[in-house]
Amino acid sequence: MQSHSWYRRFIHPVFSVAWRDIRITTRYKSWFVASFIWPIIFPFSLIFLGQGLAGPDGEGVESFTALAGTSDYSSFLIVGSLVWMFVNINLWMGGLSLMTDRTRGTFDTHWTMPVSKLALVVGATLASLALNFVPMVVAIGFYAAIGWLEMTGSIVQVILAILTVVPFLLGFLLCFAALTVRFREAGILVQVLRTVFSILCGLQFPLAVLPPVLQSIGAAIPLTHFIDLVRTIVIHGGAVFDHAASVAYLLGSGIALSALGAIAFELVRRSVRSSGLVTGY
């Protein structure tokens, strides 16, 4: 029987969409490469680049320490790379989920069903978060085992730190989903955004090397606070709530962006049904 309860209308569909994406993704053999090989090989080039720039005797490490606040450049770069991968996978899976739905041919069917359309995006985001978990664990385990990543902080605190970025991520992906419904194609936007984030948020280098204007812009992006938080906990230890200001900024901006994303998505949903942009490819 059809139920109108909040659980049946939203929560159950969210988990069903997430389960669907996890099931489909893991049925492709390439998932193994994405989860077990890519996270291991991806940070290598950055670490070797860092070693090259440090010079044969590591004299560059001193200036790196002055800029980054740590001499542990490999942990710094590995955490940055993993966050870059985290954002990347979420953009592709969560942000482009409705575009994938269009190209797959299931978009129109979903939109004629009584399910909340937000549930489709939230479910896809949940799936991408869950699928992200595997490469993170693989990479952290591998680099910790070979001694390139020194985990000073506890894994519980790292997970808590990751949870603080979820509202921001959800809001961001809702805005992104609205864009993909309106403009249909957003692949190039993903490419641009991940590069911009990688530069302004200092994912692969200390933020202090940027010109002051770009540093200010970067400091306003919640993702910058997230990478700082994760790096600090991984490299220096401590608890998430020792960084109350960053946590408050991440959660506050995340909740605001989620509300904005939900409104934008709803407005676009109505507008494309009127204009006809909801159909076609």
């Binding site: 059809q2 139920s3 049946r8 069903s16 069917t109 009584p114 399910v115």
Partner: peptide, 10 residues
């Protein structure tokens, strides 16, 4: 089962 969940069926 997936589509049934989206229809809100138990």
């Amino acid at each position: 089962r997936y589509f049934a969940a989206l229809y809100g069926l138990d």
